[in-house]
Design a protein around this nucleic acid. Structure first.
Lengths: 156, 156
DNA sequence: TATCAATATTTGATTACGCAATTAATACTG
DNA sequence: CAGTATTAATTGCGTAATCAAATATTGATA
């Protein structure tokens, strides 16, 4: 049971706080511009990139940071806003597809410039090329390891 | 208006997802061991480290990741659990102090081993010494820059 | 020093999310 | 091929966090 050193703890704290700060700022900018929130964006983009702009709820869950019930409710709201449509299919009648609507496509295309600028201003552009490379490779490696382990408890 | 490159976007996504994954795992471990949640821990530690184990609500807010009302409610719950006591003072009767109780101290000391292990297992120990150094210094620099800017909208 | 502004915290209303249980359909097994 | 297990998604219920408005107190100013 190795104890954490002071610098290691500082590293952890910086990670948590930076995350909160960046997310809050981007969310604020989106709200200021009357655009959709980050969570909506994540779903709509995933659909946009998918073949036929449609994806099963389960896949959608994996692409976001939510649990199954979280996704159900989020898609429900998106459907109410007309940004997404739900479809059941014959091939497997347990599953539901979420399909991007025309309005949904428009909503996320409108949000992108603000989102992109937020990511750049509050995060990416504050890192030099070497830092970017190192952080990305470390984080992706860690994520892979996380996934490898608790796939059971994975709402990732 | 510089556009984000693919790798920059991947960097951003790895950041967001890693954060969600690590936090979720630690929170789960704490729950499994019947210990206090992360947010409680943050408050209790801040109080523990403060002179006389007491801090004004506003200061507490700065040390966590919550807004003013978030802190009010969190401290409220902690008070209900007997982990914290609220005190008003004569020097400035607008402000409230939160004071760590004996039970509060015990609760967070009990949680620490699990929390520490989580930080180590899911985050710190997955990074080599150089990565740790680089990430910490970059993140702390970014946080400082964030604070310098929007101190107005800062619940940081 | 009465008034207006600023600060510190709290409250009301709303929203989002998680867990555990539920429903429904498909896959496996003896 | 009947019965059980597994998978996919949803729902009930509770908790926690936010924003905006309210309250209370202190500071500034004319």
């Amino acid at each position: 049971m190795k104890r954490l050193r002071e610098e290691e703890l500082a590293l952890w704290r910086s990670f948590v706080r930076l995350h909160a700060s960046v997310i809050r700022r981007i969310e604020q900018d989106l709200a200021d511009d009357r655009l959709i929130p980050l969570t909506w964006y994540d779903v709509l983009v995933a659909l946009y990139q998918a073949p036929d702009h449609r994806l099963r709820m389960g896949v959608l869950k994996e692409r976001t940071v939510l649990t199954a019930s979280g996704i159900t409710r989020l898609v429900e709201r998106l459907e109410q806003q007309g940004l997404v449509r739900r479809e059941r299919t014959e091939e497997d009648r347990r599953s539901t597809y979420a399909v991007l609507t025309r309005d949904g496509k428009r909503a996320f295309l409108q949000a992108w410039p603000t989102y992109e600028k937020g990511i750049a201003d509050y995060f990416v552009n504050m890192l030099n090329a070497e830092e970017q490379r190192i952080i990305r490779s470390a984080f992706e490696r860690m994520l892979a390891a996380h996934d490898a382990k608790g796939t059971a408890s994975e709402p990732l």
